[in-house]
Amino acid sequence: MNIFRLAGDMTHLASVLVLLLKIHTIKSCAGVSLKTQELYALVFATRYLDIVTDFISVYNTVMKLIFLGSSFSIVWYIRHHRVVRRSYDKDQDTFRHYLLMIPCMLLALFVHEKFTFKEVMWTFSLYLEAVAILPQLVLLQRTRNIDNLTGQYVFLLGAYRGLYIFNWIYRYFTEPHFVHWITWIAGVVQTLLYADFFYYYFESWKNNVRLQLPA
């Protein structure tokens, strides 16, 4: 494991912790897209099918369990928690899941490395993860005042994707035959979706003003 990969995983972990902190301690999910969280739960459920068939390392298994557990508990909190669910911006969070899920499934059925159930599901999870942030970005754009924790959550998620690209560049040069076009293209697309957000995030940070995305 290289430093970029580790830093990427830790940033991903931090993003989840920031979100859980907001939901668990402040008891609010204002500005958080349930649609995006449900898509992430689906991403991890379809990607980590190998958790029961292949053992890679303790680190790998533990992280998979954390991402599965946290994504499903976040969805549970927003949908069912007595207090948290009242802060959910239902009327603003209107992105339709299937507009992302169906094209990703079709693409995975046609463009994959190997036509097996596990491999197609893995590929579907890569495509879906690439676009899963869209409902959250749309919601941020509609939210007038984005609170610090929500802003940091999205920033950390974007940073995690960026660090994975450096990880792939590093692995390409240090490991023989390390070529995964599908993973790389999906990962680059995913990172590019954050470009606009990053721009406004740094601007607000530089000028010390509240983060606000132009409509």
Partner: peptide
């Protein structure tokens, strides 16, 4: 990591 389906990344 040679295109075989051992996915060691998260």
């Amino acid at each position: 990591t040679d295109g075989e389906s051992t996915h060691d990344e998260l």
